[in-house]
Amino acid sequence: MGSLWGGLDDVQADAGYDADHPPRMGFFTDTSVCIGCKACEVACKEWNDVPDDGYLLTGMSYDNTQELGASTWRHVAFVEKPAVDLGMPTVGPPRDADQSAASGDAGIRWLMSSDVCKHCTHAGCLDVCPTGALFRTEFGTVVVQPDVCNGCGYCVSACPYGVIDLRKDDGRAFKCTLCYDRLKDGQTPACAQACPTESIQFGELDELRERADRRLAELHERGVDVARLYGRDPEDGVGGDGAFFLLLDEPEVYGLPPDPVVPTRTLGSVWKHVGYAAAAVAGLGVAAFSGRRR
């Protein structure tokens, strides 16, 4: 079954692969250089033959894609925030607005970020999938097998990031495969290939983590104190993400959970309490028949 939470040096071995499996591959998405061109969204749709999910104008922002889902495997978020601190009460440490990547336009600060499935070390979706449709690949990524999925929807409620979803007309679950087919051919995933600014970087996870640490130090040196890595820490609630990010604001500003935890982390407590309750029900049954005759 493998381990349920905490740091994990070799996810593939934990999932039962032999020692000669390929290294764990992933994405490092450096949002500080993202220009919001959506080349990644388009490349992903094209390569993976993902159907359209409606041509809607949200009216809320330039973001008409809205969210990740069964037919959106890359999603570019557009955050518009006043560049000046309005003194609004917020949760978390106070921030210095001047330090961010301010565009200077009309006092608006633009943040863009290409979101994607995190390919978690401890993936809630994979843990709860009752059919085995979701599996860990030899590259350490998490992929759905459409020919096995029966559309139970359990994965949808077990993803702490709100990534995977059922496709309505099809009934089955879909999400980013980290271009499993391209990886097997030694190629770069379509989104990373298409990204003109190298905001999306693909590679061996260990190497990406070092690269991200260097980039963070560089930004901090330049005074961009708001830069922080998200999903980089192998000791976080999902054991670290296979696809992690450099952000310029709090995660929730981008629609990301600030402290995601895989639900299976409390699996022991869940089954223990079910066990107690089942024993209590059996006890009720015995008690109901003891004593008085009618």
Partner: peptide, 26 residues
């Protein structure tokens, strides 16, 4: 009836996964 693909109900019994209460429940 709740499944997206009801005809694949028996896939629930393909594997037994203690990490999946739906699998154990099946």
């Amino acid at each position: 009836h709740d499944l997206g693909r009801p005809e694949r109900f028996l896939n629930m019994l393909r594997v037994l996964k203690p990490t999946s209460p739906l699998s154990v429940g099946s």
